[in-house]
Amino acid sequence: MIQLAFYIFSALALAGALAVLLTRNVLYAAFFLLLTLLGVAGLFVLASADFLAIAQIMIYVGGVLVLVIFGIMLTHKAEVPANTNSQQPNRVASLNRSGARSGLFWGILLAGSLCTALFSLLIRANFALLNQPVGWQSTINTIGKQLMTEYVVPFEIAGILLLASLVGATYLAASHRKPFRHATR
């Protein structure tokens, strides 16, 4: 049963990632990324990381993915209406490298060789740690204690980083027009 759930979640994650790679539509890529993130959250539950699964859903699906979809909507280039058929779906095309297929070829070659190397390494590797028995227990208690004792400095630095990125992203995304430009004309 657990095995079946594991295979379902990993198939969900990998199929979503492959669809992100293969689709030409940026909006569809965002929705397939949602599938991948949910699959990864399920894998976290199966690896006895319940808190991280909830954090994954809240941070990625609730925050990052909404931000990505906002970005797609705001950078949508209204194309010249060569085909004014209103039955056409709203396409935000992600073009591959125009002209030769060299970018596609090198990308697939690089990723395929990395995948082959990692898989052969993992097949031959023998981790002594992974043969030990593992118990399933809730991790929320331990994570709370760790965040307040051993990891309190990274915790505070993460807070400062989030504040800095909040201010920086707001400043960067703001349009830098002078506010009284029209009034002084």
């Binding site: 990632a17 970018g103 690089l110 995948c115």
Partner: peptide
């Protein structure tokens, strides 16, 4: 490993 490779392919392609 598979997910990392697919992500790398997405970044490059």
């Amino acid at each position: 490993a598979a997910l990392f490779s697919i992500g790398l392919a997405v970044v490059v392609v």
